[in-house]
């Protein structure tokens, strides 16, 4: 056991702050088991060293990797529900009204992790929009090359498909591939995955009609949040829609967005003339 009580408390607070998930006391072994691979990848001997390093010099990438390692298998399809259900109930009808019938819809999943978010979007649109495969392109990006590879593969374990994916959608859009489940070729064709560091100048992409930038701003300081939101806005259509994580907002960060209440969640739209 290399992790001290202080380090464990720090990890607990971090995970709770960023994910609202509570690590009970006594879960030191879990922290050890999940963080050791990260420590090794970063060239450190043990988890204690990893925690000390990140505490002294916090950086968003390492922080996010730690939180994700401790919340793995926590990634749900339809995470938080409303940002996805409102896509087809509100956002899509609005876009269809203002776009030509042959205009492509471009959607960006900006922190796609292992791919649940872009494929959730793809499933919803394929079910709601006739000819979606030809009309919709979903750009999925993540800072982690490993996550981008997983998204491209479109394969999910039994435990992963159990997390919030409605059974009718599982049977409609997935097939078994050995002990895993594979998303249909039609959905995979809608999704293009690549690496992207949100905190650096962004590649030429878009312009996007809808952006999902969820549970990633929380890892950055205020000036970086502001520059990310500014760069994202530059890649969006003027009447586009931005979805943030449940604990995130543009309010008090960047005043060039208009907040629109949708169900129990909110979307943000670029303010005209901002």
């Amino acid at each position: 056991m290399t992790i001290t009580a202080t380090s464990f408390d720090w990890v607990r607070e971090l995970v709770h702050r960023e994910s609202a998930i509570v690590l009970q006391p006594g879960k030191e072994y879990l922290v050890e088991a999940r963080l050791l691979p990260i420590a090794r990848q970063m060239g450190m001997a043990d988890v204690g060293k990893l925690v000390d390093t990140v505490r002294q010099r916090p950086d968003p990438d390492s922080t996010r990797r730690i939180v994700e390692a401790l919340t793995t298998n926590e990634t749900s399809w339809f995470r938080d529900g409303d940002p996805f259900t409102t896509l087809t109930s509100t956002v899509l009808p609005a876009l269809q009204a203002s776009r030509g019938p042959h205009e492509r819809l471009q959607i960006w999943s900006a922190a796609c992790s292992s791919g649940q978010e872009p494929y959730t979007i793809a499933m919803l649109l394929e079910d709601a929009l006739p000819g979606a495969a030809a009309r919709v392109s979903i750009t999925a990006t993540d800072i982690s090359r490993e996550m981008v590879q997983r998204t491209k593969a479109g394969r999910f374990s039994q435990l992963e498909v159990n997390r919030g994916l409605p059974a009718p959608m599982l049977v409609r859009h997935f097939t078994r591939a050995g002990s895993e489940w594979e998303v249909s070729p039609a959905l995979r064709r809608m999704v293009t995955a690549s690496t992207c560091n949100l905190a650096a100048p962004l590649p030429r992409m878009g312009p996007f009609d809808v952006v999902y930038l969820r549970n990633v701003l929380i890892y950055f300081d205020l000036p970086t949040k502001q520059s990310i939101l500014r760069r994202v806005r530059e890649l969006m259509r003027p009447d586009g829609w931005l979805f943030l994580g449940a604990a995130e907002t543009t309010l008090g960060v960047d005043d060039s967005w208009e907040r629109v209440v949708l169900g129990r969640s909110s979307a943000y739209r670029p303010l005209k003339g901002a």
Binding site: K27, Y29, L30, A33, R34, N73, S157, Q158, L159, G178, S179
Partner: peptide
């Protein structure tokens, strides 16, 4: 269809979910 890695993967998930998360 069924190699040791597949059986290990299936058993690993059963342990993780039912026996304990670590």
């Amino acid at each position: 269809l069924l190699d040791e890695a597949t059986v290990q993967g299936i058993a690993d998930e059963a342990w993780l979910a039912l026996v304990g998360e670590a």
